[in-house]
């Protein structure tokens, strides 16, 4: 009975996610279409520049992409194709959108993954230490630095890191080299600055969240019980307190992932020229490549929805009070 309850819950949430994703898709689609410039303009201008008769190709292009149809027909068409796995055609790169995304998602993924690991481990450890030694000098220093980390705009931090370590000291290349194999030390090395850029704000945030979540639970009575059992302090903090503190922590960290980290990764990719989805979408906007823009916005929104769903399920698993009520 417990199992079916969870399954129904997940199915309901998934349906909800699909509906919202559809809403977002519609909004994005409409936004792109009501813009002052027609998406095909640049493409046509390019063709015309190559000496082809614009009037002639217009018919061909419109027929091929269905741009001659009214907007609702195009919209239905787009959704129909999407359901069949066809994400449209990227004008600016001359390849299917799905292929573009398939080749580039890994760059965003590695950046976000490495930054999360870096920020998560260090931030949570500092936060725990800071809470256990509340009002100590270490705590004050950690709190002060977390303020700085939260306040520093990450794109500026990226520029400063480039200025210092790439331009002045020449330790790193100023631009991301895509020719390096993904799983190589050289690739890892060139990701150091981007990961610091994206990770600093996350690190500072995690430190603060962990500290306050730990402080909330450190004063609870079960901590005293755990000590009265004769447990070593390490177990009291690491098991009894942390296991309770992790509940609010997961929610806020996951929420950050959707709202702050995606935006931060977008800017970090632009600063360092990393060809991830953020950079692709950024380029596509300036190239009026609407199919790419809609696709990437949709992917980001869907990811956020999935993250929310996973958070809720994890939470249900970690908090017995929710699981059995």
């Amino acid at each position: 009975m417990k199992k079916t309850w969870l399954r129904d819950y997940i199915i309901r949430r998934l349906l909800y996610a699909i509906i919202i994703a559809w809403g977002i898709l519609t909004v994005t689609f409409v936004l792109v279409r009501i813009g002052p410039t027609s998406p095909a303009d640049k493409y046509l201008a390019n063709l015309a520049a190559r000496g082809q008769d614009a009037a002639q190709v217009i018919a061909a292009v419109e027929a091929r992409y269905g741009l001659d149809q009214p907007i609702y027909a195009q919209y239905l068409n787009y959704i129909g194709n999407l359901v069949q796995g066809d994400w449209g055609w990227s004008f600016s790169t001359s390849m299917p959108v799905i292929e573009l995304i398939q080749t580039h998602w890994i760059y965003s993924f590695q950046l976000i993954l490495l930054s999360s690991i870096f920020a998560g481990i260090i931030g949570i450890l500092i936060g725990i230490y800071s809470a256990v030694r509340q009002y100590s000098r270490t705590d004050y220093i950690a709190t002060f630095f977390s303020f700085i980390g939260i306040s520093i705009p990450n794109f500026w931090l990226g520029v400063m890191l480039i200025l210092l370590f790439a331009v002045q000291f020449g330790l790193f290349k100023t631009y991301y080299d895509t020719s390096l194999p993904l799983f190589s030390l050289a690739n890892l090395k060139q990701l150091i600055l981007p990961v610091i850029t994206l990770g600093t704000g996350m690190l500072a945030g995690y430190t603060r969240y962990t500290r306050s979540a730990m402080l909330d639970n450190l004063r609870k009575e079960f901590v005293r019980t755990a000590r009265a059992k004769g447990l070593p302090e390490r177990t009291v903090i690491g098991k009894h307190v942390f296991r309770n503190a992790i509940l609010p922590l997961i929610t806020i960290i996951m929420f950050d992932l959707g709202s702050i980290v995606f935006g931060g990764a977008y800017l970090t990719e632009i600063v360092f020229g990393i060809p991830g989805l953020g950079r692709i979408s950024f380029n596509a906007i300036f190239a009026d490549d609407y199919a790419v823009v809609v696709a990437i916005t949709l992917i980001a929104a869907f990811l956020i929805l999935m993250i929310n769903l996973i958070t809720d399920i994890t939470y249900t698993y970690l908090d017995p009070r929710i699981r059995y009520d």
Binding site: I20, G23, I24, T28, L31, V32, I34, G35, P36, G258, S259, F262, G263, Y266, L267, S281, F282, I285, F286, V293, I296, T297, A300, A301, I304, L305, N308
Partner: peptide, 21 residues
Amino acid sequence: TDIMMTFPFFLLLVLIVFIFG
């Protein structure tokens, strides 16, 4: 509000500002 929160805020911002000037 939930739906608004799901929107990738910065992507949206870039998109709208680009479209509307």
